[in-house]
Design a protein around this nucleic acid. Sequence first.
RNA 1: GGCACGUUGGAGAAGCGGCUUAACUCACCAGCCUCUCACGCUGGCAUUCAUGGGUUCGAAUCCCAUACGUGUCACCA
Length: 487
Amino acid sequence: MCEQKQTVKSRFAPSPTGFMHIGNLRTALYSWLLAKSLGGDFILRIEDTDQERLVEGAVDVIIDTLKMTGLNYDEGPGVGGEAGPYVQSERKEIYRKYADQLVAQGDAYYCFCSAERLQQLHDENGLGGYDRHCRDLSADEVAERLARGESYVIRQRIPLEGVTKYYDEVFGEIEMENKEMQDQVLLKADGFPTYNFAHVVDDHLMGVTHVVRGSEYLTSTPKYALLYDAFGWQRPHYVHLPLLMGRGEDGKVSKLSKRHGAVSFQELVKNGYLPQAILNYIALLGWCPKGNNQEIFTLEELQQSFSIDAISKSPSIFDYDKLNWFNSEYIKAMSAEDFAAVALPVINETCPSYINAAKLAELLHSRVTTLAEIAAQVDFIAGRLPMEGDLYTNKKNKTTPKLCAQILADIKPVLAETPAWDNDSLFALLKDFAAETGVKSGAVMWAVRVAVARKAVTPGGATELLEVLGRDEALARIEQAIAELNA
RNA sequence: GGCACGUUGGAGAAGCGGCUUAACUCACCAGCCUCUCACGCUGGCAUUCAUGGGUUCGAAUCCCAUACGUGUCACCA
């Protein structure tokens, strides 16, 4: 009989902070891709062991994000599973039990040091760790202090000598001298476990085969490996991801954070980015399909071409320019109907009802990089803008305020009488008018567009704007423009 | 400061010892298209892969050193 192959199981284990950091989302994506590309399961676990940082509704944010991005999970809050509960605060007793086992084995010990004492151990830079003050307390003393009800934590007893190594699927062999490691806290004074302990216990109990997380854990993983060894558990495959960085205004690069702009998924969505565009973009930050020559991928395509060995080791900088490009590509790829469905509500909310909203949506479709730009682009339709600067003077079309006044005065009656009010007819009409009067057609278009929009850049040309505005409003604006020009 | 990891253009990156006079994408620049802009199209943009040594007939690709960068040293995850 051949050995049965263990099914792959990966997890996403965020702490509920109230928002989904884009770096965490990418971790979730890669973790999901890894499991799914190998036909495995993906689980969601909530790491809420820090009682001081609890945020209401934060778990919903995580679940909603996974739902919106299509990263469905096979086990976790809301869907259940054999290894539940999947919320760490509900597993407190489990950790206690395993911590006790470690103490009994001599792989962990009670520490009664006060916060003040620990504070003093740190140098002026906040560096320096624990001095192992309680590491060798006698059993009697421990029992006595426990009986007295002294506050304590449980610390991991790291070997003083030797080297711990592990193999990372991305970074390869990682070695760490045991003397470099701290006797980290496993169980806190409030009885909750630390991340360092809880995730190890949970990953084992939940059957996680692949631990996918950011490379900030690269150097603490030996301690976790030691924990697996102490329990006699099989160590999981480690897959550390290169960090997502941001470049600050000072030009310095550091871990992507709020100071670099919008970095949470919901913030980006609020700013008009499409979930799939965001996902596509971050998928390519730190990973690249073999021989890549394309950029746009669906989740299914990503899943098909995903492989660990194509994950890069070097950190990558989050680039809003490229995100914008992805987003505009995704917007352009939307059907006219789908785009109208998202654009129309914005248009109807800001613009008067007599305009041709459908036409406006059509004009906007190729001109918008985020959904949030819609409102900004239609401001001149929503209401008449004040005239700013000398828009009537245009070098290329050789227009001057005087010429424009003339053109507008002449064209107004023609526009008032023309039977059809659609772009094609209007365009033909203005062309003919230009030919008849001997004025450059570009000049006519320019004069009309500026009169009607009072904006240098508009989503559409003169006749398109006329169609959107409708005859009455267009004429009214032209009349106002003539009056202003002659004033 | 100790330790760990990284280093291909402004950004993401392909490349895994000869097919590379370093793909592809974003950004940028120029031109075309054109009723402004956008879209679209065309072209340009690293003689060089952090630097210095080596190994080799041959190196961005292997080795070593240096520099620089980032991460980490919490009763936070």
